[in-house]
């Protein structure tokens, strides 16, 4: 197992400029139903510290599936559609998924959305001959497994203009991402839930001073 990678993402909030390139890249790479505003990743544009003018900050917050080590979405999935690869990537098999949305309810990170029959119809029009979806299902970020398998980075990471998104292997001690996680600079979200997320964030607040 030591040779099997364990994929993870680190997001540096200090350099995310909220350009939304990752959203666009992901949507086109993975053919998500943009016509219904459904995305595998979002970049929130948040106003924080809103009580006074001196406090106010603008924060861009990218989010996606955390590819949890202990994914509640998987344990509730009755069909086995949601499954985890050895490399840590959590996937949904649209051939198996019946769309009960238990996983949507179970995911603490709001990472999943529906692909409906209407979306399939729209997708055929939108992506034409290259549209690859054939079945309605629940969908979410796949860590671009199809790219990672070919040795590429996920589409959102590849294009991230701020290099805010970094992708790496936690099992490789020389990997930059692994180092950031190990030193504790990058922290997961809502770790207390025991989900074991594999997306880690570098805070833009603790770091600045």
């Amino acid at each position: 197992m030591a040779n099997t990678p364990h994929y993870a993402m680190v997001i540096d909030l200090n350099t995310c400029v909220g350009c939304n390139a990752c959203m666009a890249a992901c949507a086109l790479e993975n053919q998500t139903p943009v016509w219904d505003n459904k995305w595998r990743t979002y970049v929130h544009d948040m106003e924080i510290g809103t009580s006074t003018d001196d406090d106010v900050r603008r924060r861009f917050f990218p989010r996606l599936c955390n590819h949890c080590d202990n994914p509640p979405c998987m344990s509730v999935c009755p069909t086995g559609a949601t499954h985890k690869l050895d490399n840590g990537i959590v996937l949904v098999d649209d051939e198996l998924c019946m769309g009960c949305r238990a996983c949507v309810m179970a995911c603490p990170y709001d990472a999943r959305y529906d692909v409906t029959s209407d979306d399939l119809e729209q997708g055929d029009k939108f992506f034409g001959e290259l549209h690859y979806r054939t079945r309605p299902s629940v969908d979410k970020c796949s860590f671009c497994a199809h790219r990672v398998m070919r040795g590429l980075k996920p589409a959102c990471v590849e294009t991230c203009v701020g290099s805010a998104r970094m992708f790496g292997d936690l099992n490789d001690p020389n990997d930059e991402v692994a180092k950031l996680v190990k030193t504790g600079v990058a922290k997961p979200l809502m770790a207390h839930l025991g989900t074991g997320p594999n997306v880690f964030y570098i805070s833009d607040i603790e770091r600045t001073t």
Binding site: C97, M98, G99, C100, T116, P136, S137
Partner: peptide
């Protein structure tokens, strides 16, 4: 359900 046929699973 989104995919009625898959209920077979």
């Amino acid at each position: 359900l989104l995919d009625h046929w898959a209920v077979i699973n």
